[in-house]
Design a binder for these strands. Structure first.
Lengths: 332, 332
DNA sequence: ATATTTCGTGACAACGTTGTCTCATCGTTA
DNA sequence: TAACGATGAGACAACGTTGTCACGAAATAT
């Protein structure tokens, strides 16, 4: 900036004014400064600016996802970016990989970079470790899962309600022998989905004890093996609910291997590309990552802008998408 | 930092030394400072640090992708992150949406945040606009497409060779009436894939004029319509090569609608989830986004570390994955 | 004509760090 | 015992900005 000022023959404060479009500079000097800055290819240093500037915003936020490569996560990421970029806010994105230590380290990395806010998918047992920052007025919005040990905004899917809808849908098609295939119950969303599913069955008079419940399925292969085992049992279920994308894929593979794709009904939680191209098409409870991302961004901006209402959890409704696999009749 | 110094009863420089693990502090003071910093929940401000620190690294880089939600892009993103996070480098990610103006704006946003380097997927006609920054020693690595109007490192897939392999594969299964479905030739990768495909056919004595070439297909629907039209023509192709994911999806839909999935061979460029679950499985030329991302990160780090060798383009080989659709025999 | 306001501009301190230099203390060596 | 080097610690300037204030000149009001 000094160099630009020297070249234009003005003081540095005048350069600062021009670069920030502040008033109080004559058109003539403005032009001279502008030309000098272009000649020197000069650009403001945001970091130095926010150091001094009151309020000290860096126009950047931190985003913590299970993995930036996870389709569900990256849809959220995209929606966030779209909303935030309108305000010129840049996004630091990072992947957690189910590692609570990483969660803490990455949060620390964001804090050291003085982000204006954070959007987090919590995985550690508790998020109490960020209480100091949060109460020190660092806006935080949790997504997908509600935080534990701290009061903060959260944006989540109606996991239990969605799973209940899946149960009701299968019951409506006459199924009474059902199976639940789920992720590890350590994860809040998985617990909620299981609860919603089983409670709905309970209301229909189907005791939980007659439902095949398989949990702790974290990848396609474990889900596939679990499904093969359950389907080969004495009284196999006539319908399956899978609580997560990878689990759904595993079940699909197992059904295909056994030639049972058109015999056993399937409803999966989470939509995925090409679900309608399968044979039969896969009926799912679709989440709306773009809405989650947008809402999270809006909440974060509101907090950044000073909203100090009580923290709230926002629930984004899921949606049943009928494609065939969930409408198969029971076959004994 | 002042407060920590005051609380610990030391000078601020001593606090700085402790926080940066610099030597020359007695264990006793070190402990006192550490305790004070924990009590005040103090954390170093990286921005302020890099302002003064020589070399002035911010430990952050900018990443420009077609869209963070695009699976291919987000795989690259992930691989980059993994390599860079080992060095404590954070990643600003942003989406371009095929908008050259956005490309420039986002690059400017990164520059204003004084990133240590950038990884870019170029879309503007020319990247000459970054020459000043690049020659001012800002490391840049281009991915997926080579830059125009500037000499810089690039990491790309062997598009022409991969497409040629697809052509050879289809020829090897006896096809002579082929079709090429591609994205807009404005995109370098699309041009390369077309060239590789057609040249390979040419070498086998199949004149380009007998190949149905449909281009400018940017989404599933346009590809579907194009495929329906071509397949309904007098002498429909017995095999199709689609140059990109969305185009492949469109062609798959058209084939399914016409009940031609098992009659017309198909090889797609780009692998995708569940390709093996289709009926038949879809044979593809798979790219390796994780390798591209890793290599790009390594090159960027090398440049950041001062490597000033001549810019090079690194080519990551693609791979033919056989799944059924590409091995169907011609049916007249 | 003078007093007052407005306008354009720059000097200077401050933001939170780190690099450089200096200084006091202490233990070692001649 | 005197000279010396090593060690721990702090004072101060500087990084590139912006907030505050002050100042002179021009425009306006009295």
């Amino acid at each position: 900036m000094r160099h630009v000022a020297a070249l234009a023959g003005v003081g540095i404060k005048t350069v600062s004014r021009v670069m920030n479009d502040e008033p109080g500079v004559s058109e003539a000097t403005r032009q001279r400064v502008l030309q000098a800055s272009q000649q020197l290819n000069y650009q403001l240093d945001m970091a130095a600016g926010s150091l001094r500037r009151s309020g000290r915003q860096t126009l950047s936020i931190g985003l913590l996802l299970p993995s930036v490569a996870n389709p569900f996560s990256s849809e959220i990421h995209r929606a966030l970016e779209d909303t935030l970029s309108e305000r010129g806010i840049a996004v630091f994105a990072a992947s957690l990989d189910d590692d609570p230590e990483r969660e803490k380290a990455l949060v620390a990395a964001f804090l050291g970079r003085r982000v204006d806010g954070m959007v987090l998918t919590p995985i550690a047992r508790s998020q109490a470790y960020v209480i100091p920052e949060h109460s020190r007025d660092l806006p935080m919005v949790f997504i997908d899962r509600e935080p534990v040990g701290i009061e903060a905004d959260a944006v989540v899917t109606d996991n239990a309600a969605g799973a209940a809808r899946a149960a009701a849908h299968l019951l409506g098609h006459g199924h009474t022998r059902l199976a639940y295939f789920g992720d590890t119950p350590d994860i809040q969303t998985a617990r909620e989905r299981r609860r919603g599913f089983l409670e709905q069955l309970g209301q229909a008079g189907i005791p939980t004890s007659t439902v095949s419940v398989r949990e702790g399925l974290r990848d396609v292969e474990s889900a596939r093996l679990a499904a093969l085992a359950v389907l080969a049992s004495d009284e196999p279920p006539t319908a399956i609910f899978s609580s997560q994308n990878l689990v759904t894929f595993g079940v699909m593979r197992a059904l295909k291997e056994m030639g049972a794709s058109r015999r056993v009904a399937l409803v999966g939680f989470d939509d995925f590309a090409l679900a309608d191209m399968m044979d039969p098409g896969i009926t799912v409870i679709a989440q709306h990552p773009e809405r989650i991302g947008k809402l999270a961004a809006e909440r974060l901006l509101a907090r950044i802008d000073g909203d100090d209402g009580a923290p709230r959890t926002y629930v984004v409704p899921s949606e049943l998408i009928v494609r065939g696999s969930g409408e198969l009749p029971p076959s004994y």
